[in-house]
Design a protein around this nucleic acid. Structure first.
Lengths: 223, 223
DNA sequence: ACCTGAACACCGTTCAAGT
DNA sequence: ACCTGAACACCGTTCAAGT
């Protein structure tokens, strides 16, 4: 009856009906284990041991389901404590914004195809909206112009999503044995394959820093 | 025989067999008219008046087809003339890089879902690789550190793809009547709806400028 | 060289009906 | 409130066979 494969029936032996949260949770499991391409409504129904049509009682369509999944991915990203960035009485806004971006990055990396799911859902203004607000909270520590803060935060978010998505695409390509070396890679880059982890993190911070430095300069000029 | 709908039989009356280029061209037409969701192998075959299986003689799978489509989108972006950015004998590398980014942006906007197609193909290193090289050519006018140039160019490319994709997603969402206001939008933003075109272009340039300014500062410090 | 025909193993979504 | 069963209109891909 209770076999070890049954990890999806949340609370086995309880009343046999699912909540929307259960459906989203199971979708998240499938996503992480098998990737976005294998996250179908039919497969999800199969794991829940339910007819595909049953899902449409919990969720109006697949797009909405994916938006809810994206929402969860962002919600589960680590929270940054602003107090950690108060140095000598004043807030280090650049360090804090970088920390927010890094937390979101790690949150995206925590689920297979996380960046693609969140990106493709961005226009619906769920999960990604939360991510944007977090980055913006960091910038607001220094920037009083709301329009400037919004555009800068968007830029950082696009950068985070783009980098992580690209990275996750390459993970999949690599695991499928598709050759394709890194875009823009030179032969020298290939030799650094072993230090790949380090290289990657540096690239991430570097790009964000460019934007933060650019923003700092722009704001200093208007003072 | 020749009716006005027959825009796809390239060179009507010629030998009845298609080339790979014909297949890609037709795919590009479907993409632009109906969007990525409607670009299926079966539909493409239908437009070419051929069995779906016939496509697999020209192309190994759909993913490759999409990569070729992405390639074409980038190839058709306007070319920037470096000479236009020589002022008082020296090259304005920031203006040139911005021009390259803008040309790529316009190229993506020229096809429905252009940014999504190119993004989802990025890891395969076709079309997007060309785009990266173009941005990098601008940066190389000022930056001699290849690693820095590569990462900066990647950042700009992610920014361009992210912005255009988001914009194209919103176009589709708007046309389908999905409400979802702009991510991070405030009530005041809504009042500027009529000046949307201007706002959008400003946001685009602003984000790129942040990166260029950040890069300039970083390089000035290492001198 | 280029394509047909048939098949395989899938999709998302709707809707009347059940409990 | 939550789900079944059956159906509709699709997918991408393979492969033997044709011309």
């Amino acid at each position: 009856m209770s076999n070890s494969q049954d990890t999806n029936r949340l609370a086995v032996g309880t009343a046999g009906s699912y909540s929307r949260a259960d459906v989203v949770e199971t979708a998240l499991n499938i996503l992480d284990e098998f990737g976005l391409a294998d996250l179908s409504m039919r497969r999800l129904a199969g794991v829940l041991d339910v007819q595909p049509s049953a899902l449409y009682w919990h969720v109006p369509n697949k797009q909405t389901l994916l938006a809810l999944v994206a929402d969860q991915i962002i919600d589960r990203a680590a929270v940054v404590n602003p107090d950690d960035f108060v140095k000598a009485g004043s807030l280090d806004w650049k360090a804090r914004t970088l920390a927010e971006a890094t937390a979101i990055r790690d949150g995206l990396l925590a689920f297979r195809d996380g960046a693609e799911v969140v990106s493709s859902t961005l226009a619906l203004g769920l999960g990604a909206g939360e991510a944007l607000a977090r980055i913006r909270a960091g910038i607001d520590g220094f920037c009083s112009d709301a329009e400037v803060a919004r555009v800068a935060a968007e830029s950082i978010l696009f950068l985070v999503l783009g980098q992580v998505w690209h990275e996750q695409q390459r993970m999949q390509a690599d695991s499928l044995g598709v050759v394709a070396p890194a875009v823009g890679a030179t032969p020298e880059d290939a030799q650094l394959a072993n230090e790949d982890e380090v290289q990657r993190i540096d690239s991430f911070e570097f790009g964000i820093q460019l934007i933060l430095d650019g923003l700092e300069k722009k704001l200093a000029a208007t003072r």
